[in-house]
Design a protein around this nucleic acid. Structure first.
Length: 418
DNA sequence: TCTGGGGTCCTAGGACCC
DNA sequence: TCTGGGGTCCTAGGACCC
């Protein structure tokens, strides 16, 4: 059996832990730059606020419906996630951290356990230790555990937050209940395609001929189909080394000049290099893209990208900025209002096992310099910058509604007044 | 005015090798 | 006149996830 434990409305729940007055009120958390809604409490869902709604479109609900709005606070969410996952890891020897708010547990050798009670115990323990509410789905396969988890959450009054699918009758019931678009692994495109041929729920999908699924959805669809039918196919996955690492951001405003875009891209380079160093990694290629705002249909649109080969595998900000600037010159066009740029580091390799080139290699002084810069920036970010970065602006995100970083900054710890 | 960020996997087709 | 067979690697594009 597999268990999937998922934190309910995770980001919104994190905000509530440190401000219980938010309980019972509609809460939303916004994306970077306070752009759009990326998390909602149940009350916010009831207000029909959809995932991805632009923040300015829900602003009026603050007054009219008591909506509470938060900028995203990843320092808080990341730390809370680590606490929850560590505790849940104690419930099984084999786990897979699936996302910031979900974890799979493999339940082998638990035959003597009453799984429903075991699930309730998880919920109690996590709630008491962290204040985060979670739901538990248990089933013979991962895809079915996902289904079970949705049911546990949807009917929480009845299930107490735990649902177990452990026989063919419950499998069929669960599959029938799951709309095709809600199936794990079926996105918008496939959902539309499947609806068009009369496949409306997960059960319909399991009954499709294998050849059809293989042809239209490749081996991925086939595996999913088996797993949903109750034949264990998808197993826990090992955490593997990352293949890509990205820094992509929309700008706070539109930029019309090369100088402004160049400044942003330099700053993103510095961010990316720093991220590489933090993970003891380096890269030998970087993909750079820039584009205008696709939502502003009345403005001329432009979008382009370029892959830049670095002279050698590196994580030096100096080398990366120098190479990426060459790429930017190639794709930048005058006459457009730019809204977003991004960098993706590719061909990642561990810093220690770096492949040396024959003719040219990194100036050995870079690595010493970089670790010193990182040290200086650790306490006050932006203390040391590169010449291409704006000395004042550097890295300022719009974050009007951010809560305190209660668990990771001593200066922002919660205050209790008597 | 204002619309996110960071990832993964699979497949087909082209270039190239012997 | 007649032009093979088997393989690898890389990339772009399409799908998906949270």
């Amino acid at each position: 059996m597999y268990a999937l434990i998922d934190c309910n409305n995770f980001y919104a729940s994190c905000e509530r832990v440190f401000d219980p007055s938010l309980n019972g009120k509609p809460v939303v958390v916004l994306s970077n730059n306070d752009g759009c809604v990326i998390a909602r409490s149940n009350e916010a869902k009831k207000l029909e606020i959809k995932m991805g709604t632009p923040a300015f479109q829900v602003m009026h609900l603050v007054k009219s419906s008591g909506l509470k709005m938060f900028s995203s606070n990843y320092a808080l969410y990341g730390d809370m996630s680590a606490r929850v996952m560590t505790l849940l890891g104690d419930f099984s020897p084999e786990v897979e951290l699936y996302s910031i708010d979900e974890i799979f547990l493999k339940m082998v050798g638990f035959e003597k356990f009453v799984l429903h009670e075991y699930g309730l115990l998880m919920i109690q323990k996590i709630l008491r230790a962290t204040g985060i509410p979670v739901s538990v789905g248990i089933a013979p396969t991962k895809a079915l555990a996902k289904v079970a988890n949705k049911i546990a959450k949807k009917f929480s009054e009845k299930t107490g937050g735990v649902h177990i699918i452990d026989n063919p009758v419950l499998i069929e019931k669960g599959l029938k209940w799951t709309k095709i678009g809600d199936v794990w692994g079926i996105g918008r495109r496939y959902a539309a395609k499947l609806e068009a041929i009369g496949v409306h729920n997960a059960l319909d999908f399991t009954l499709l001929p294998k050849q059809y699924v293989q042809k239209e959805m490749s081996i991925v669809g086939l595996r999913l189909q088996r797993d949903l039918s109750g034949l264990p196919t998808l197993d826990l996955e090992q955490t593997k080394a990352k293949k890509n690492m990205a820094v992509t951001r929309a700008f706070g405003k539109n930029y019309d000049t090369y100088g402004e875009v160049r400044e942003r891209v330099s700053t993103y380079c510095a961010k990316l290099a720093e991220k590489l160093r933090r993970e003891d990694s380096c890269c030998s290629q970087v993909y750079l893209f820039i584009h205008t705002n696709p939502h502003r249909k009345e403005l001329p649109q432009y979008s382009n990208g370029v892959t830049i080969k670095l002279p050698y595998a590196t994580n030096s900000t100096i080398t990366i900025i120098k190479s990426v600037m060459g790429g930017l010159e190639k794709i930048y066009r005058d006459g457009f209002s730019y809204k977003k740029a991004g960098l993706v580091a590719m061909d990642l390799a561990p810093d220690s096992g770096r492949q040396l080139a024959i003719f040219s290699n990194e100036d050995p002084r870079h690595s010493t310099l970089m670790s010193m810069i990182d040290r200086l920036n650790r306490t006050t970010y932006g203390r040391v910058r590169f010449a291409g970065q704006d000395p004042i602006k550097t890295w300022k995100m719009r974050q009007e509604f951010r809560s305190n970083r209660f668990t990771t900054r001593l200066g922002e710890i919660i205050l209790i007044r008597c």
